[in-house]
Amino acid sequence: MLVHRSSFSQSLRMAGLLPHSPLLKLSSSSLLRRSHPSVPFLYSFSLSFSSLAAKKQHKQPPIAAVLEIGGVKIAKDDVVRESDPSNNVPDAIFSKLGLQLHRRDNHPLGILKNAIFDYFDTSYSAKFVKFDDLSPIVSVKENFDDVLVPADHVSRSYNDTYYVDAQNVLRCHTSAHQAELLRKGHTHFLVTGDVYRRDSIDSTHYPVFHQMEGVRVFSPDEWLGSGVDATSYAASDLKKTLEGLAQHLFGAVEMRWVDTYFPFTNPSFELEIYFQDNWLEVLGCGVTEQEILKRSGREDSVAWAFGLGLERLAMVLFDIPDIRLFWSTDQRFTSQFSEGKLGVKFKPYSKFPPCYKDMSFWISDAFTENNLCEVVRGIAGDLVEEA
């Protein structure tokens, strides 16, 4: 079936794909880009109804015109601006703002967040200040410049980041709040929130997910007399802290540290644990770049920072096979989890196998793959997968 993009919605309905299922699958093995004498390019892909979908599609709830996050009201027109050429936030992404799954105590993400909070409260006598309701709209400076992301880094592109306008974005990471909190004088803090990156969708990728950022600042009197330099002192404390966190979440597991690179820490590490016969990356961390502390008025200090993805850990701890399930409102999913019960194993509830269909349609030369994915999801639902 060959269809022009302008008639894509009609063609999906003719093919029987709408409105019957909100969960479809794009197979990249059949996603082809071919030349044609009359139009620039052809995309061809196969769609499948996933077994995760309910037998009957429920209508999508209406998108709220105004959200309130952290006491601040955010109107849809503040985020989705069709008249602004620099804006690339679709309705489907705006609909996720304000849901704040990490603040729901009976949700796997909220349960995991609270378990991490409990560890830091116990280990540090409640020294860590917790932030989990900060606005996801941040400036380009906060999101990139303040954490030393290079000016030519690919993450700054419109193909990778959701821009509200030329100067503001939906945060790509919770690190976007780090510099501001340091300037305000915080020395121990945890930031949890929903983050946004333009991405394909499959069982392990979604354009909205949740992160937690942790930062601890040391003053000179804490490492002087220890016999080691400031960087080594901070790195040692960081590893001890995060090894304790891994044991708190996963029990007595084998761990290893892997050297890596991040623009905002040096040295930088990744922590891996041996879990269910595989090495699993748990988080990234490191000693904060001195330039970040200097800009925040703390040039005489040293600090460590870590960042972890809540979905990644929750999928392992709760045996959740697909990242899209976190957004489900189906009681067969939500009723399986309770406040304070970390590690309850998810029980699949759908018995329906996938049903594959193939489609192709024409696009312009300027149409990028992420734009393509969002057009498809805007019509067929936000659970369209590119595998």
Rank of each mutant, 00 (worst) to 15 (best):
S226M: 00
L190S: 06
L224P: 03
R216Q: 15
V217R: 10
S219G: 01
R198Q: 11
T204Q: 13
H205F: 05
L182Y: 08
P207M: 13
H188P: 08
V208E: 15
H186D: 09
L190P: 02
V217I: 12
R183D: 09
I201D: 01
H210L: 13
T204P: 08
D199S: 13
V191S: 00
I201H: 08
D199W: 02
T204L: 06
P220F: 04
E213G: 13
F189M: 00
T192N: 03
H186I: 01
G214A: 07
T174P: 04
N168S: 08
T174F: 01
T204R: 12
V191N: 00
N168W: 03
Q211S: 04
F189Q: 01
S175A: 10
Y206V: 12
H177E: 14
A179E: 15
D229N: 14
I201F: 04
G193D: 04
R216Y: 10
L181E: 05
E222G: 02
P207R: 11
R171D: 02
F218T: 14
A179H: 15
A179R: 14
E213Q: 12
S219R: 12
V208H: 14
L190Q: 06
R171Q: 06
G227H: 01
Y196H: 09
S226Y: 01
T187D: 07
M212V: 14
D194T: 14
V217F: 08
S175V: 03
E180Y: 09
D194H: 12
R216H: 11
H173K: 09
G214K: 08
L181D: 10
H177C: 08
S226L: 02
S175Y: 07
T174M: 00
Y196A: 10
T231K: 07
V228A: 04
V215H: 02
H186E: 13
S219K: 12
G185V: 01
R183L: 06
H210P: 10
D229M: 05
Y196G: 11
C172I: 15
R198A: 11
S200N: 14
S200P: 05
R197L: 05
L182K: 06
L170E: 11
L190D: 00
F218P: 14
Q211E: 06
H205Y: 04
P220A: 07
T187Q: 02
H210F: 10
D199Q: 05
G214F: 00
A176M: 12
S226K: 03
G225L: 06
S226I: 11
H186N: 12
N168Q: 11
E213D: 15
V208L: 15
N168G: 04
